[in-house]
Nucleic acid binder design. Structure first.
Lengths: 371, 371
DNA sequence: TTGAAAGCGATACCAG
DNA sequence: CTGGTATCGCTTTCAA
């Protein structure tokens, strides 16, 4: 291994001082464009990589990141935030401040939150772009200003965002389809519910589901997706209608968190035990439905891990100036009655993280179920 | 936030020098037991936490860790090692050297490898204890000597090991059982194969499977586990016997990587399409079996993630003197025909990790499927 | 626009 | 046994 170049090396090579080199490399004001160019060139040829420890040690600056997410309607966003602060806490370098900005519902107040973060002069933003379109202008502005933005759960295309952390939606849909096919022995009509086909995340799940089903189980039939537009009553009513119009329905895949209204509709229509349910996410109200076999399986989207990874990517960029990956796509977990308890147990334990000092005894205690 | 105490603070509080404080805190020779006690007491009351950046900057020591695993019989251990070096590379602090020691088969040469690592004076060990019993003496010796040991994939109880990283075996078995129950509509006789009931990992999978099956699907019946003792021919022969003696067999859960011999036996016995297969792990030979529906589902044990987490735990302990968790238990991933391609695609991509500098364009490229 | 120098907190060595 | 001090590589301020 070649000894790595430091600021002094490039300063001496150029016959200048380390102060100038530093300013040149950081595009600070007060450096002639010629020396700046010479420095940057020399840094490249010497393969200069900053020593993060030294930087941290001498720097008094503290990084500020804004986390813009949905107010905890369900536990999903609470888990995402928990993952973020968990990862931040675990960080060796503790010069990081996290500001949480939340908005009450999809598309409501997220522009304001983003603007506020920008105005506050944060160094980076983690956001859930519930309405990518409306956020686009703000995100472009951030990226033009050199503020990295990481999207969680959903992507916001053409926004110059640094990275996106999400579940593989196509795979989620495909897994749901394959399971459904198996559960129904390859026959029957199935439905899919989603918020809106306009949302990439949802339409991809539908696409994955439909294409896998038609590919692997040609005898099965998928209905047109049911759009609930994130409104519970709409979801319930449309579901009732679905069950009335399609008495032959054998299965349904709910791609969003909105599975309870569908389940209630099925119950009220007395078709609950005739229809195989595959749902999404895991939250308290869903637990009894899984226990009672009303829901055969749910696709868990690992919100805590999404939060952890989002923070890691952003932090790595802020500290090293490198982006480990533009897209972190996680495989979803499958939760059924059989392994449900293991996930719940984990969720409980997770609220009281345990750390130990020194070489511990033989008593395992922490289960990283959601990892 | 209270300003954190540093060496100088505790030195001044005691009217001594930082050098003495340093030696006292590190149990270095040449400190009177009284001052050592005073220092340690004061450190505690001041809540002293060492500044890792400063330590790294001033220390010329490089950490050496030995990774003792099975030579790549299948891709499993290659993936584990890949995860380890991946995580090591990503580390900000780069004063780490990894030495890989491998052994050809289970229980063969692992004591020697462990002894060699100890003799070489490494600072920590990550190991797969294929024969926990035989390794026990060595591991205790390591822990007595203050050398932290992290187990991957399998635990080695009562060895003073620092931590264990593994898949939740009970949950794996339970998930397999619930799937099996669904696939078979709650009826039929099923079998389980494993290496040996003496191996905790395997017997737990069996236990999870059996208890979940009897709990959720009382009409189903589980046969006594079939032990193959890690010998392919034994596995094949016993499987043939099984199929002959139990023509009513409807499903089989293979808890180990040894699914190919079982599949071949089923094929040769002409029962392949009458038996639902749920297997473990994912490797090239299994791919066509999943594609052809011979295998309904496989439980993927995320070797890469296991490697990553094992390294993280060990590193954190070496650097911070803290163990983040004694037990990292991961939820397995379920792979079926529907989502198989997504996992394979990931495996390909993973061999050529991509990093980018600066704010990248809108072209997602990396899929962290195995995360 | 540039240079010089004072830290940051821990380690390691040399004197006493 | 203990104190003093140079050192690690970078940031930041003060002079020039």
């Amino acid at each position: 291994m070649i000894k790595k170049a430091k600021l002094l090396d490039i300063a001496e090579a150029l016959g200048i001082s380390t102060g100038t080199v530093h300013r040149a490399l950081h595009n600070h004001a007060g450096v002639s464009s010629v020396t700046k160019a010479r420095v940057q060139q020399m840094a490249k040829t010497l393969g200069y990589r900053p020593n993060l420890a030294a930087r941290y040690l001498s720097s008094k600056r503290t990084l500020r990141v804004s986390v813009n997410t949905l107010k905890g309607t369900t536990s999903f966003w609470d888990e995402v935030r928990a993952g973020i602060s968990e990862e931040a806490r675990a960080l060796v370098m503790e010069n990081i401040e996290i500001e949480y900005r939340t908005y009450p519902r999809l598309g409501e107040g997220e522009e304001e939150a983003f603007e506020a973060a920008l105005k506050a002069g944060v160094d980076g933003i983690i956001t859930f772009p519930s309405r990518p379109q409306s956020l686009q202008a703000w995100m472009r502005r951030a990226s033009r200003g050199g503020i990295p933005v990481v999207c969680v759960a959903t992507d916001a295309p053409n926004t110059g965002r640094l990275a996106v952390v999400s579940i593989d939606t196509l795979a989620s849909g495909s897994l749901a389809a394959d399971l459904m096919g198996h559960f129904l022995s390859g026959e029957g009509t199935v439905a899919v519910t989603l918020s809106s086909v306009a949302i990439t995340e949802h339409s991809e799940k539908y696409k994955g589901f439909a294409s896998t089903l038609s590919g692997l189980y040609p005898k099965m039939k998928v209905l047109e997706p049911l759009e609930d537009h994130d409104i519970e009553t709409v979801c319930y009513e449309k579901s009732r209608e679905l069950f009335k119009n399609h008495p032959e329905l054998a299965g349904i895949y709910v791609t969003t968190e909105a599975s309870i209204p569908v389940l209630n509709a099925a119950r009220d229509a007395h078709v609950l035990d005739k229809v195989i349910f595959i749902t999404t996410d895991l939250f308290p109200a869903l637990v009894p439905e899984i226990r009672s076999q009303a829901v055969a399986a749910t696709i868990y989207q690992r919100p805590r891990t999404q939060g952890r990874r989002a923070f890691r990517v952003l932090h790595e960029f802020l500290v090293e100036g490198e982006c480990p990956s533009f897209q972190v796509t996680l495989a979803p977990h499958l939760v059924m009655r059989g392994n449900l308890d293991f996930f719940l147990q984990r969720q409980t334990l997770e609220s009281t993280p345990q750390r130990a000092v020194g070489v511990p005894s033989d008593s395992p205690e922490m289960i990283d179920y959601f990892g």
